[in-house]
Amino acid sequence: MSIKEEEQRIIEEFSVFDDWMDKYEYLIEIGKSLPVIDESGKSEPNLINGCQSRVWLAAEYKEGKIWFTADSDAIITKGIISLLIRVLSGRTPKEILDADLAFIGQIGLEENLSPTRANGLRSMIIKIRTYAAAYINN
């Protein structure tokens, strides 16, 4: 499945909720099911500090694709991370760099990426792109 197709599936999953609380309830559920990064992955170099919450991101490059694992101390952040990983993990560096992640806006969660939230999510996306850029010539 392409990145765009995966994004489309997420948009459809979220389209059943017209109430904000239901939407976030679902996001929390997703967050709780995110496979937790193991303790060694929660090391200082993987930490992205936000004012509101903390995010850990680890990346592994295997056979032309990048695999991400991540975690956060806040569950909503974790839910969004989980969606990002579903879309971006196991992709080639070029696919990652080409992704515009428009689905976040389409499911109404873009405010969580605004700089004022300062929850590390924005920095996480930048870091994902930095990894991809570093591997693009491999």
């Binding site: 904000w20 609380m21 976030y24 929390i28 004012c51 509101q52 919450s53 101390d73 806040a74 569950i75 909503i76 952040t77 969580n112 939230r117 300062a118 929850n119």
Partner: peptide, 21 residues
């Protein structure tokens, strides 16, 4: 329960709070 999660969810119920440091 993380403070930021509480504040985000309360916002969805119309309640404006602050969270963080």
């Amino acid at each position: 329960a993380h403070a930021s999660d509480i504040a985000i969810l309360m916002d969805k119920m119309g309640i404006a709070l602050r969270s963080g440091k």
